[in-house]
Design a protein around this nucleic acid. Structure first.
Lengths: 150, 150
DNA sequence: CCCAATTCTTTACACTGTCAAGAATTGGGA
DNA sequence: TCCCAATTCTTGACAGTGTAAAGAATTGGG
């Protein structure tokens, strides 16, 4: 890992945390680093990764960090059906493509331009703030495995 | 409840079950009826409702029924972030609108016509078969509660 | 450097859902 | 109608994900 890169990133996160009124802790920085290095990972994977980095961290601290940072938009939580919550450092407007077979998730830009799906046909009086879109399909790898089985 | 209506519906479900190669059981019919009468309910609610109807049913039978019927498109499962799976009898193409505060889910038609969101900008080699869209916001009831708190 | 507020650790627990084994039911065929 | 194999249901155990609560440790402003 390039030391300066990790540092500069850690600096940004520190700022973001402070801006959100959150304290800067080694646990939170490490959790953020883990999310950044393995986007779409689930909490358990992140816990493992952080333990490799810090030695020890409680499961609860990982959840607290993920929740706090999600709440303030420092990271983003996505929750595909049939999977535990996944986390990513990319917080701009984009959607996801999930494999029905292996569960892999990749980022995908919005289908029809900037944010068209935010305009629902009929809002039922709701105050809508987000359109979450998940495309479901089969990834190339799983396709080739299926073909091999034929 | 209008007896004939329930019967005719039960008949349809029986046909659908048989067409799917599934056996027709009192449990499955009751589970379907529960889903039909309370769309977007979670498994536990359905379990309660069916117990009110049949007297007893195991939790496992409810899950088996829901899974089997979902798999064959007799009902549809949706899984909003932060909630257990929800089930509905409406199986045509439509999306959902969920309240961030109370979790209520309502049906909503696709924003831009027939099924535009199915066309992802870049498919990453995936074989895409569905675009799942969930709009997130605050329902009218929760809006008024928030206003009352001010 | 100190202290209050926040965060982390530890432990317990709730909820959602699945697995496995044996009992009961369904439904096609004699 | 009865029988039997396949399917489904019941029961009990269990795994994974996430939260609650209480006390210890850390953070950061004064």
């Amino acid at each position: 890992m390039i030391e300066s890169e990790a540092n500069s990133n850690a600096l940004d996160v520190s700022k973001a945390l402070r801006a959100a009124g959150l304290q800067v802790t080694a646990q939170r920085l490490a959790v953020y680093e883990a999310v950044r290095s393995m986007p779409h990972a689930i909490a358990d994977d992140i816990c493992q990764a952080v333990r490799g980095e810090l030695g020890v961290i409680s499961r609860q601290a990982v959840y607290d960090s993920l929740n706090a940072m999600s709440e303030y938009g420092i990271i983003r939580r996505i929750q595909p059906a049939g999977s535990a919550a996944r986390y990513e450092d990319r917080v701009d407007n984009h959607h996801h493509l999930a494999c029905r077979q292996c569960g892999e998730v990749v980022d995908i830009n919005c289908a029809v331009g900037k944010a068209p799906c935010l305009v629902a046909e009929h809002d039922h009086g709701y105050d809508i703030d987000e359109a979450e879109v998940i495309y479901w399909g089969v990834c190339p790898t799983c396709q080739s495995i299926s073909n091999r089985d034929d």
